[in-house]
Simulated assay, not measured.
Amino acid sequence: MPAATPPDQGHAVVVGVDGSHAALNAVRWAAAEAVDRDLPLRIVHAVPRDPGGTADAVLPEAQDVAMIAAESVRVQCVRTIGRPEDVLVRESQRAAMVCIGARPRHAMIEPVIGAVAAALARGAACPVAVIRTRSDGTAHTDGVISVVLTDDVGNDDVVHLAMHEGRLRGRAVRQIDRRADSWVRRFPDVRVETVAAGSGHQYGRDTGAHDDVGLAVVGPADADALPTLAMPTCHPILGYPDCSLLLVPR
């Protein structure tokens, strides 16, 4: 049986950059995505006005980081005039994925996501990766990949993307079952370990992954709520939304 292809194949994997450390973490993450999908990595730097003949130091630095992260990556560098959120929403129309960086949240009163991520959550036409940077400068992506199983239309696409990321990143995927009629919900007192028959995986096998959630793959309902979410309420993914996020649009 051939390997499952990544969902939502487009013309490129797009990453928005602004010279920040968080953006460079997003470039590293996006470079692996582009190589895995056999697509170019399109590095986009949006500027508010035409700088004339001024050299753009942001793009060469981002290109160098991408080439170090994945030697075989094919890079396209673009500087364009406009607000980053408008530019990246437009780029999403022909992208397999849009990636951006996000700094750590230092206080609960801060918005859950910034203006660019909020605009992409509302209007992107492809999945959006928001790669969170920790206070020490490292990318918050090194834990398990978590996804919620629901009865929502399109949930299979969300889970498909989570499984793809688990294979690509070498991470365990934690599936949280919230389906109304699932066996887990019928028998909440029974501990369940899910293993696909014929996969060669054994019960209790140590995955070697950190228990902390490094990436939450979420569907349209959570993505729609993010721009207006000020104080996170109870969510089945522990650590959400302060981990890195992969938003799957409606």
Rank of each mutant, 00 (worst) to 15 (best):
V195C: 07
T5M: 12
V58E: 03
D222E: 14
A225W: 03
I145E: 01
M1V: 13
A162Y: 01
A139G: 10
A96L: 05
A102P: 01
A139N: 06
T133A: 14
A70Y: 02
D56R: 05
R74Y: 09
V65E: 14
H201P: 02
V153A: 14
P188Y: 09
Q202G: 09
Q175L: 15
C77G: 12
V116I: 08
E110Q: 15
A196R: 13
S244H: 08
V75A: 06
A125K: 11
H164D: 13
I113K: 01
R49Y: 14
A197K: 11
G10I: 00
V13D: 01
C99R: 00
T138C: 11
V192F: 13
A197S: 13
P127N: 08
P227H: 08
Y203E: 09
V148D: 00
D212A: 15
V98G: 01
G16E: 00
S146Q: 03
D136F: 13
G166C: 04
A34Q: 03
V35N: 01
A69M: 08
V47P: 03
T194G: 09
E193P: 06
G214V: 05
W183I: 14
L149T: 04
V15G: 02
G101R: 00
R179L: 09
L247H: 00
P241Y: 04
R178A: 13
N25A: 08
R134T: 13
P249V: 06
C234M: 12
A129S: 15
S20T: 15
H235Y: 14
V130N: 03
Q93F: 09
T133D: 10
A129M: 10
V89L: 06
R167L: 10
A55T: 13
A107K: 10
C234E: 13
P220Q: 12
E61A: 12
S199N: 04
H164Y: 15
T228Y: 10
A46C: 08
L120M: 10
G123R: 14
H106P: 07
A102F: 03
V217Y: 02
D189Q: 14
D177L: 03
I68Q: 14
E33D: 15
P40V: 10
A196K: 10
P241K: 05
G198N: 08
Q93W: 07
E193S: 14
A125Y: 06
V153L: 11
A46F: 05
A124Q: 01
A30Q: 03
G154K: 02
A230D: 12
L149C: 10
A95C: 12
C126K: 01
V192M: 14
V248G: 00
